[in-house]
Amino acid sequence: MAFTKKVTLKSSDGELFIIDRAVALQSRTIQYVLEDTNPVDAIIPVPAVDARTLSKVLEYCKKHLIDLNTDFEDYSKWDKDFVDAEVWMLYDLIMAADYLHIPPLIDLICDKIASMFKGQTPDKIREIFNIDNDFSKEEEEDFKKKSGWAFK
């Protein structure tokens, strides 16, 4: 049996994840840590990501490693289901993907969030993503006058 190197990651809330080195290398942040310090059997702390989010991120990394040979269609269906999540989960995921620097995962979530903006009104976008409206009534009226056609 081939020997596979393992890496241990530690989430912000202290949970340990023992994974194949190849899976971890999809994160450029971890790749950098491994290349630079080359720790043997060391635990790499991931202070920005909690266990729940980290396990989801690793699920993505494993899938994208193992299934490199599956055809494109299967892949995109899996990705689509993967990001079919609650808004708070997408928040956590994108922050984690950004921190761990996993470009394809960043792309996937950004695409998902962008698609949630399309065809919505500003009110609806604020509601879905919990954003405060800091415009005055007058300013809002002004937008409607200037680019009201876009709201139709």
């Binding site: 962008a114 903006f117 399309k118 065809g119 919505q120 009104t121 500003p122 976008i125 604020r126 954003i131 405060d132 409206n133 800091d134 415009f135 809002e140 937008f143 680019s147 876009a150 709201f151």
Partner: peptide, 13 residues
């Protein structure tokens, strides 16, 4: 996003 969506996003905050 396309320009039309951006014009809407502009007035979010």
């Amino acid at each position: 996003l396309p320009v039309k969506s951006l014009l809407i996003c502009k007035s979010v905050c």
